[in-house]
C-alpha cells in the first residue's frame, strides 16, 4: 500500500487496533471449533428418539411388581395393595424430606410407576421381588447407602435428597401403559 509510509507517525495505535481485531476474530474462530466436539458428546438423535416402552399390566397381580427397561434404566411398575395406598396417603406431607402427595405421583392409585434409580448416587434400590428388603417404610431400600423409600417411592430416611422420579407415561388402555 502506498500510504503506509505516510501513516508511520500514527502507525503504532493502528497496528495495535488491527491486532486486537484480528486476535478477537481468531479467538471467536478457535472458540467455535469447540462447538461440534461438545455437540457430538450430547445424546444423538437416535438415542433421543428411542424413548418409549410399552408395558402390559394384565399379568401383574396385586402386590406384585415388575421392572422394565426404559432409556437404559430400570422402571419399577408396582401394583399396590389397598394397605400400601393407605399408608402412602396417611403420612403428613409436610413432614417429608421432599414433600409430595401420593396423588401427585400416580395416575391411577393402584399403579405406581417409578424410575428405579436411587436419587442419591444412582444405585437400583431393592424391593421389587417379594423376598427383597423393602426398608423401614415398605417401599424400597437402597443397599448402597441406606436410603429408605415408602410405598409412594418417596424418600423417608437416608442420604437420598429426592423422591424416586416418576417417568412420563400414559395409559394406552386399562391394562397397558406406554412409558416415554
Amino acid at each position: 500500500m502506498a500510504d503506509t509510509a505516510h501513516a508511520a507517525p500514527d502507525g503504532a495505535p493502528r497496528r495495535d487496533f488491527l491486532k486486537l481485531v484480528t486476535g478477537a476474530f481468531a479467538a471467536v474462530g478457535v472458540g467455535a471449533i469447540a462447538w461440534p466436539f461438545i455437540a457430538s458428546l450430547q445424546p444423538a438423535k437416535d438415542t433421543l428418539a428411542l424413548a418409549s416402552t410399552d408395558v402390559d399390566l394384565a399379568p401383574i397381580t396385586e402386590g406384585q411388581a415388575v421392572t422394565v427397561m426404559w432409556r437404559g434404566k430400570p422402571v419399577f411398575v408396582r401394583s399396590r395393595t389397598p394397605k400400601e395406598i393407605e399408608e402412602a396417603r396417611a403420612v403428613a406431607v409436610n413432614s417429608l424430606p421432599d414433600p409430595a402427595t401420593d396423588q401427585s405421583r400416580v395416575q391411577r392409585e393402584q399403579w405406581l410407576v417409578l424410575i428405579g434409580i436411587c436419587t442419591h448416587l444412582g444405585c437400583v434400590p431393592t424391593g421389587q421381588r417379594p423376598t427383597d428388603t423393602r426398608g423401614d417404610y415398605g417401599g424400597w431400600f437402597c443397599p448402597c447407602h441406606g436410603s429408605h423409600y415408602d410405598t409412594s417411592g418417596r424418600i423417608r430416611k437416608g442420604p437420598a435428597p429426592r423422591n424416586l422420579d416418576v417417568p412420563q407415561y400414559a395409559f394406552t388402555s386399562d391394562t397397558k401403559i406406554r412409558i416415554g
Binding site: G11, L18, K19
Partner: peptide, 19 residues
C-alpha cells in the same frame, strides 16, 4: 465468509509486522 475476513485481517497484520 468468516475465514475470508480473517485471512484479510491476518494478512494486514502480517504486512504491518513486516513493514
Amino acid at each position: 465468509i468468516f475465514l475470508t475476513i480473517l485471512a484479510g485481517l491476518t494478512y494486514a497484520v502480517k504486512r504491518k509486522i513486516w513493514a
